[in-house]
Design a protein around this nucleic acid. Sequence first.
DNA 1: CTAAATGCAAAACGTTTGCTTCGGT
DNA 2: ACCGAAGCAAACGTTTTGCATTTAG
Lengths: 149, 149
Amino acid sequence: MSQAQAKEEPTRLERLCAEKGLKMTEQRRVIARVLSEADDHPDVEEVYRRASAHDAGISLATVYRAMRMFEDAGIVERIDVGDGRAHYEEARGDQHHHLIDVETGSVAEFTSADVDAILQRIARDLGYSLVGTRLALFGVRRDKPAEER
Amino acid sequence: MSQAQAKEEPTRLERLCAEKGLKMTEQRRVIARVLSEADDHPDVEEVYRRASAHDAGISLATVYRAMRMFEDAGIVERIDVGDGRAHYEEARGDQHHHLIDVETGSVAEFTSADVDAILQRIARDLGYSLVGTRLALFGVRRDKPAEER
DNA sequence: CTAAATGCAAAACGTTTGCTTCGGT
DNA sequence: ACCGAAGCAAACGTTTTGCATTTAG
């Protein structure tokens, strides 16, 4: 386990994969690294692009399969930014939500214990146990001089 | 029953189409009626099915085109229940959200001025004007006798 | 009469899958 | 040696589109 090889990072994702008993192939290692390095919310095509840069021998199907696996394992989260593609981010422990800039497509994150609590209560009042929340805001910058697109 | 003509309904949607200067074709009239009559959140295929019952000469492509038009005109709203298809509902004036029963797929609606207000403020604090909110809760019934699936 | 809307079938799009080969454990 | 995983391409389900024809205004 403790190798002095210094392969750039422990890569939390790799460790989690091992824990889940998943085969750690070279492709998955690369994809995991890409996701760990990402500080944005890449879609599958983009993950594929970045992974290909690390290792050309990766197919799009493998990325799709890996993303689904990672998602099922709970180590990445799919987010829907409204462009028809699935975007992903590494699953940190926190419950956070997204605000999408409709002009640039960039994604900001935020948390709100208040909102989370109210939603929890609303679900309860409706007779449900809350098992998931999908919340995304869409906005335009307020300050910036009105530049189109 | 207040209507002498008895064309079944004034169909708010039809009126709105006229106001927007859209051609009111037979197909659109039928689709508009289907949407006005719906009290659920049909997907396009379902709208097509219902419209076909009223008038067999409607193609799926026309339904898709009509839905997009209606959506752009702001007279219907697209909602994403997480099944990969677009679902629609007539746009009433209110800001409401959805709770999807993950077991049955049924959709309940709710409103929360509190949540709306907090989200508005959050967007503002992040430097954005809120132009849209996508909020959906996913839950399982709490009370019902523990029947799986 | 003219521009816009329809129908049909084909294409586009993101995603999944069957099958054979490959590689981790 | 096994069995899961990769690669490729073909299949998929949803949505869009090109084009010839019809129709509302």
